[in-house]
Design a protein around this nucleic acid. Structure first.
Lengths: 322, 322
DNA sequence: ATGAAAGCGCTAACAA
DNA sequence: TTGTTAGCGCTTTCAT
């Protein structure tokens, strides 16, 4: 800026004014400055600018799992769009379910002075964020609750969705339902299992619900379905706790020509083109993200009300070709 | 930092040393400093740090279309992972095919002093980036070529993939093929159309290839297929230029019980569970991103060799339930 | 091993 | 309307 000022024969402050498009600069000076900027290849430095001005960095941070997963990808897209509409850039980072990485990433984002954070918790302890939150950093937790901090949180009704899906299977006459479960160290999965169990217990069929754990992907889901169906007392219905498992189960049931009932948590693209009927616990993932990012920008805008805990509803819907 | 120094009874510089984990600090002083940091709630400011030190910001930028699209989502995931492994954060932004927004976003990223950029071009003119590139900013273009700048570029063999798909249809005896086309203002779509046309011309069937434009999504694709099949001289084969179109065509052909041949550019998740056979032009989207981000970090690491233009191959593969 | 002074690039506050 | 001065939070350089 100094060099530009020298070349244009003005003071450094005038260069600053021109660069920041402040109105009160004589057109002639402004032109000289702009010429000097071009000639010298001057590049404005926003980092220095926001350091001195104390104004916001116009940046928000997002920590999220598996960006390639369509659920998280659509969340990221909504947040990015919302931020862009407010001239704010989005820094995304994925701790990959690792609590240490999560803490490191969040600290890093704080040290870069983001205006706010959307966090899909990878751990159960976010006490290290409490001070930041108390110092006024807007933080919204998404999809999973935080541990050890009070802050805005937007969740799905995992419990209710699973409860409804299993109740529906029972109402359709199924007395033996197998739950196909991934990991239990993730909040959403625990809630879904809890909802399924409670539905069975309420129907007096606590023993009619078997749980098959360690179902990580479509292939293990297919294998689990095959094995269960070949057991002495095969289930007549399946409840899959996520869409990867649902896909594997659909495929295997179709291959075996088996007409067991199937319901699964999460809808997915092309679910209506799957080769057999099933049901899904559907919800609006984009709405989930929208609510979170709206809360965040409300906070950034100065909202100091008590933390909101929002739980979004789910719907049980038919899918597959009929 | 000043306050911390005062409280710990040391100089500001010693605080800096402790915060940056420099070894040459007496353990006792270091402890006093760390205590003061805690008591005062001191937060290190990386922006100020990189401003003064002139060291890198440990940030890269990515401009990309539609993060919710699985193709772009997997690219984003690969780049994020690669960056994370180098302690670098990723700023993502989506110009949404708008050249003005693209320019604004890229300028913004530059003003934040990112270490490098991965750009999926939204426009055909990137001359405004040339100066930055010449000044040494590492930039890699992904999926589409840049206009007006020489820089590393990683592309798919769009032409070859389409050529092969249509040649295959012709070899299977089809004399009337309809190309289902989206927009022609995007490079990849133009290349795919060019490849399809050339394949027909080479087979002496230039007239046998009809092009149906304006096919934006699965619904319009389905409508186009239905309309074409009901025309006086219906095509016996379809070539879809992207996977959204392929999905709509599969669905409509299945609904009509029509056995026309179908090939489409892009593979997609669950393509093997679609209710009829078709073929896809498949490729490794993750490899595409990997090559791009490797080039970028090579440049960031100091590589000054001439720009690389990489074109990745495609494969023609069968999909759908048989 | 520790500290004092200067300054990264910029803007706020004030003065002319 | 334009310029001067101070200083954002930090690290460099150099001295002790």
């Amino acid at each position: 800026m100094n060099d530009v000022a020298g070349r244009a024969g003005v003071s450094l402050k005038t260069v600053s004014r021109v660069v920041n498009q402040e109105p009160s600069v004589a057109p002639e000076l402004a032109t000289r400055v702009r010429d000097a900027v071009k000639e010298l290849g001057y590049r404005h430095n926003r980092l220095a600018s926001s350091l001195r001005s104390g104004r916001s960095t116009a940046t928000i941070g997002l920590t999220i799992e598996e960006i390639a997963n369509p659920f998280y990808a659509s969340i990221t897209a909504v947040i990015a769009d919302y931020a862009a509409a407010r001239d704010t850039l989005l820094i995304t980072a994925s701790p990959e379910e690792n609590p240490n990485d999560e803490q490191r990433l969040l600290r890093d984002l704080c040290s870069r002075r983001v205006d706010g954070l959307v966090v899909v918790p990878a751990s159960r302890d976010h006490a290290f964020l409490r001070e930041e939150v108390e110092l006024g950093l807007p933080v919204v937790f998404l999809d999973r609750p935080a541990g050890g901090v009070e802050a805005d949180t937007v969740l799905l009704d995992n419990y209710g969705g699973a409860h409804r899906a299993v109740s529906d299977l029972i109402a359709r006459g199924h007395r033996d339902t197998a739950v196909l479960l991934d990991r239990t160290d993730v909040y959403t999965m625990r809630e879904r299992l809890r909802g399924a169990r409670q539905a069975a217990v309420e129907a007096g069929l606590g023993d009619g619900l078997s749980v098959r754990g360690g179902v990580r992907d479509p292939a293990t889901a297919a294998a689990a379905v095959a094995e269960l169906l070949e057991s002495p007392r095969p289930p007549t219905a399946f409840f899959a706790v996520n869409n990867r498992i649902t896909v594997g189960a659909v495929h295997q049931l179709w291959r075996m020509g088996n007409d067991a009932a199937l319901s699964g948590f999460d809808d997915f693209e092309l679910s209506n083109l799957m080769p057999r009927e099933f049901k899904v616990v559907a919800y609006d993932a984009r709405e989930l993200a929208r609510r979170a990012v709206e809360l965040l920008f409300d906070r950034i805008g100065g909202d100091r009300s008590a933390p909101h805990i929002i739980t979004l509803p789910t719907r049980l819907e038919r899918r597959g070709l009929r």
